[in-house]
Each structure stands twice: as structure tokens, then as C-alpha cells.
Design a protein around this nucleic acid. Structure first.
Length: 504
RNA sequence: GGCCCGUUCGUCUAGGGGUUAGGACGCAUCCCUUUCACGGAUGAAACACGGGUUCGAUUCCCGUACGGGCUACCA
């Protein structure tokens, strides 16, 4: 049977980078194995449902190119792919479990259980305590029937018997053993008639013929329950294999990465920006921060996985080829934003100019800058080795689109000297007559002119740069002049000179 | 508290009974260059601790410490 994996997020808000990494690993594994990548929406918690979250998830997957083969809106023969639309399936399945004595009704209210936990911190609903609680194991059948008929709120719990070792062969961690006596009787069906994660997950994975469950480490403890559920249903022979991924840790300090860490550390932790009801619930995304999707993917792939060689920059195709669950590490990976930006720079350098220009176009448009592709391609060619983020093209290099906003005073003090004034005046006169006004011709003409006047390029060029860009750093002077054109070049040089003169 | 998982430079990691413990990000110095960046060179920087096993442990085993996850009618 072919590999079938699923990414099963819950639409409770924006999905952070940890969730996206899970999607990526599932995707890579599916592609590599010639398998099927499924998106399933786990919207069984009505209270936590957030409108727009599902659309966000889909848009994020599309931006990254992690397109599901099956899922809501993606087709597939195993739907529906939203758990809220599969409610009747779970109802039927859970009745099977009750009928065979693998599950039971429990009438204890959330308040009653809460009170128990308050007085006994170790309280768990399990094989010991259930004998003293209000459920169909302790009540007379007639009483249970009566309550059910009266529509008294109740849940269905999995009946777990003690004295059993549950061995799990995890593809990442190896063998993990749990004792059934330590496990609590998990709720399978909630009082509102919706299934819990545990029930829906197992039923769906079985019905959708999932072969490998690749998910975060936070699920490892409940995997024992899941195995028991497969057994209860009699599905153990076709139970999927498990692979639990290490958590992504916050950049500094302790604990796993959380939504709030984005604001806390001034870094994006989401694929796309998310607009919440308040600023505190709104987050910036990798896309908006100026990351290329393939760089984002590369970064996430390396958070918890590494090939055996020393390479670190990969295309998606290479990741598909090289990925393996066996090489996923067991320990948590700290989110390293510097590394993310470096990786983005590598991918920007590896991307051709016309593609980059397409990415930069909306950014330029948003600022009201000139945004025709031919011009943008020249900008990108000049700057691609000097930027970390796509936004740098219109921010760091704003002077390629609009006049200099401010001159670097420190630079002026170091590079400018009034003795350069006469020769600069002359040069400015000459420049517009260079034909054609391209980098090579301008450079040749300028250097000849400087030699003729016995001036050193090392003295003059930095001043030209200061006038052109307002800064002592930036792209090559002659390339920039050619890009700006003769009129703009002359204008900037004159304005710069005037400014330098009075700043003395 | 209980259960489970983990621990190699600051960070991501390679490695694996005998290695000068390798690479990358970041940092520092130098070279290239009109600047920055790119590129190149160099440097500082790690096997959590204690017991075993062994001729020999960073590597295997057991403890301890530390970190993490789970312990909801959330996923």
C-alpha cells in the first residue's frame, strides 16, 4: 500500500512555524515516497474555532508550495476532510465501542471533576477512580437508560484496563513503552456530541488509510491511548506508524516557541501575517518580512532535521530527495533568526533577476515607487548580494527609487574635502555628455577625466557615492549612475555638493 | 507531584569505543574591493555530571542534574 500522510491542523488561529514544519515534513515524506499528502481540518472544538483560520492555513500552504493532494477544496475520495462534517461517522463508531464494552457513558459534570482535581492534584479519571464516579460502569443499566433518554449531558470515555504494556515503535525515537495502569480514561465523545481529538483522529486516520502519522512531540504521551483505541476498534493490523517531531524552542530563554514570541523578540514566527482583533493578536509573517518561500522552507526543514553531509542550502526538490525521518533529531531545536536571514540571502542570490523582480514589484508599488519589471530587474541585479530580505530592496536601497533622504554626516566628515569642489564641478559638467550612459562608458570617461586632472579615484568615488546614496556603502558607483540616468545623477551630485559645502 | 522525551561550540548540527571532535550561523582578525556586500583565509568557541562496562569512553549501560512535553468534555 502506498504512503498516505496527513497534516491535521486545528483552525484556532494563525498557524505558527512549528505547525508549518510539521506540514513540511509530511509533504517531503509523501513526495519522496511517491505518496499522498492530505490536509484535514480538525475543527471539533466549537469554542476555539476562529473564522478565517482555515483560509489562512490553506493560503500559507499555497504560498510555500505545499499543495495537498486531498483536502477541503482539493478533492480526494476519502472526504469530507473537515471533522465537523464527519460528526455522524464518529457517533456510529463510538456506539460500537460502547456496545463492545470498550467505552462507557460518564455523567460527571465538568464542575464535579474540576472540584475533584482541586482537592486532589493527582486526580485522574481512570480504572481506579471510575468505580466511584457516575458512569455506566457503576450505575444500574436501567438508570443509565433513564438518564440517556432524559437527555442528561454525558460523555463517552475509553475504558482502559490496567496491567498492560503498550510498546510504540516511533520512527524518530525508537521504542517507547507506557503502562496502561498509568493512563486515564480519555473522553472520546464530548457532551456536545463532538468527538475529541483522540477519537476523531483515530477514526479518520483509519478511514483515510493513513500509513504514517508525523506530528509534534506534544502528542507522544497520548499515543498510548491512540494505540489502545486502534485495538479497541480492531484496527491494530493497519495502524499507522508514528513519528514524533522535536519541538521548536523559543530563540532565548526557556520553553517552546509561542505566538507571542514574535512580538517579544521582534521576529516573525508565522508564515503569513495574521490580523487579529487587537494589535496584540496580530502577527507578522515570514512572507511580509521579506522571506522567499523556498528560504522559509529551507529554514524550517533544518529545524530538527539535517542530512549527513555539510550542506545547508537546499531547494525543495533536494529536500524531497534527501529527507528522511531517521535523520530527524530527538531534541528540540531553537529558533535562530540570524540563520533564517542568512538562508534567505543564499536563496535570493540563487534566484534569477526576473523572478526576484516579480517579488519586489508589489513592495515597490506599495511605496509608490517605479515598479516596471525591467527597472526592477536592474535594481535587483545591483542589490541581490547585499540584501538579507526582499524588503531590503526597497528599504535599504530606497535611493534607487527616490532622492537621498539624509546624508551620513560621519561619512561626509571622513570623505569630503572642499579641495575636491572644482574638479567635481568639472566632472558634473562632463558626465551628461557620456554616450551611451552605461556603467562601462561612465566609468571609462570618469577615470580618464580623473587621471587627466591628477585626482585619485579613491578620493573622489566615495564622495560621489555619498551624493548618490547618502551613504558610504552601497552598490558600485558607476552602476548606480547608469541606473539613475544622466539627469538624476547630475541632480544628485549637485545637491550633494551643495550640502557638503554648507555642512563644513 | 506522576508519566514520557531529551542533553556535542552562544545557536543549528556531523560524528561515533582509540578523531588535532568536523561543518554552518553569529562573533573577531586579515585578504580582495572606491564602500558595503559577495568571495577567500584565519581565530575564539562544545561532548552536563557521577558511577560502571572496557586496555581505552564524548560514543554503550545505570544513576543524578538540567531542559522539555503531557497530565482538559483543547488540539
Amino acid at each position: 500500500m502506498g504512503v498516505r500522510v496527513r497534516f491535521a491542523p486545528s483552525p484556532t488561529g494563525a498557524l505558527h512555524i512549528g505547525g508549518i514544519r510539521t506540514a513540511l515534513y509530511n509533504y517531503l515524506f509523501a513526495r519522496q515516497q511517491g505518496g499522498v499528502f492530505i490536509l484535514r481540518i480538525e475543527d471539533t472544538d466549537l469554542a476555539r474555532y476562529v473564522p478565517g483560520a482555515e483560509e489562512y492555513i490553506v493560503e500559507a500552504l499555497q504560498w510555500l508550495g505545499l499543495i495537498p493532494d486531498e483536502g477541503p477544496g482539493f478533492g480526494g475520495a476519502y472526504g469530507p476532510y473537515r471533522q465537523s462534517e464527519r460528526q455522524s461517522i464518529y457517533q456510529v463508531r463510538v456506539q460500537e465501542l460502547v456496545a463492545t464494552g470498550r467505552a462507557y457513558y460518564a455523567f460527571d459534570t465538568p464542575e464535579e471533576l474540576e472540584a475533584r482535581r482541586l482537592q486532589d492534584g493527582t486526580f485522574a479519571y481512570n480504572h481506579l477512580t471510575r468505580q466511584h464516579l457516575r458512569n455506566s460502569l457503576t450505575m444500574r443499566p436501567e438508570e443509565v437508560k433513564r438518564l440517556l433518554e432524559k437527555g442528561i449531558p454525558h460523555v463517552v470515555r475509553l475504558r482502559i484496563e490496567p496491567g498492560e504494556d503498550i510498546h510504540i515503535q516511533d520512527l524518530v525515537r525508537g521504542e517507547v513503552v507506557f503502562q496502561s495502569s498509568e493512563l486515564d480514561d480519555k473522553v472520546l465523545l464530548k457532551a456536545d456530541g463532538m468527538p475529541t481529538y483522540h477519537l476523531a483522529n483515530i477514526v479518520d486516520d483509519h478511514m483515510m488509510q493513513i500509513t504514517h502519522v508525523i506530528r509534534g512531540e506534544e502528542w507522544l504521551p497520548s499515543t498510548a491511548h491512540h494505540v489502545l483505541l486502534y485495538r479497541a476498534f480492531g484496527w491494530e493490523k493497519t495502524m499507522p506508524q508514528f513519528a514524533h517531531l522535536p519541538l521548536i524552542l523559543r530563540p532565548e530563554g526557556q520553553g517552546k516557541l509561542s505566538k507571542r514570541d514574535g512580538a517579544r523578540f521582534g521576529i516573525p514566527v508565522f508564515p503569513l501575517s495574521w490580523k487579529g482583533a487587537t494589535p496584540e493578536e496580530s502577527f507578522e509573517g515570514f512572507r511580509e518580512a521579506g522571506f522567499l518561500p523556498q528560504a522559509t522552507l529551507n529554514f524550517m526543514a533544518l529545524l530538527g532535521w539535517h542530512p549527513s553531509d555539510d550542506r545547508e542550502v537546499f531547494s525543495v526538490e533536494e529536500l524531497v530527495r534527501l529527507f528522511s525521518l531517521e535523520r530527524v533529531s530527538k531534541s528540540g531545536a531553537r529558533f535562530d533568526y540570524d540563520k533564517a536571514r542568512w538562508l534567505n540571502q543564499r536563496h535570493i542570490m540563487a534566484t534569477d533577476d526576473s523572478t526576484l523582480a516579480q517579488y519586489v514589484r508589489p513592495l515597490a508599488e506599495a511605496k509608490g515607487y517605479r515598479a516596471d519589471l525591467p527597472y526592477l530587474e536592474r535594481v535587483v541585479a545591483l542589490m541581490k548580494e547585499r540584501v538579507l530580505l526582499l524588503t531590503d530592496f526597497v528599504e535599504e536601497a530606497y535611493y534607487l527609487f527616490e532622492p537621498v533622504r539624509a546624508y551620513d554626516e560621519e561619512g561626509i566628515r571622513k570623505k569630503w574635502s572642499p579641495v575636491l569642489q572644482p574638479i567635481l564641478e568639472l566632472l558634473i559638467e562632463q558626465l551628461p555628455h557620456v554616450k551611451p550612459f552605461d556603467a562601462t562608458s561612465v566609468e571609462t570617461a570618469t577615470k580618464a577625466f580623473l587621471q587627466e586632472h591628477e585626482a585619485k579615484p579613491g578620493d573622489v568615488l566615495p564622495v560621489l557615492r555619498l551624493a548618490l546614496m547618502g551613504s558610504t556603502k552601497g552598490p558600485a558607483v558607476f552602476d548606480t549612475m547608469a541606473l539613475l540616468g544622466p539627469e538624476e545623477t547630475v541632480q544628485r551630485l549637485r545637491r550633494g555638493m551643495a550640502y557638503f559645502l554648507q555642512s563644513r
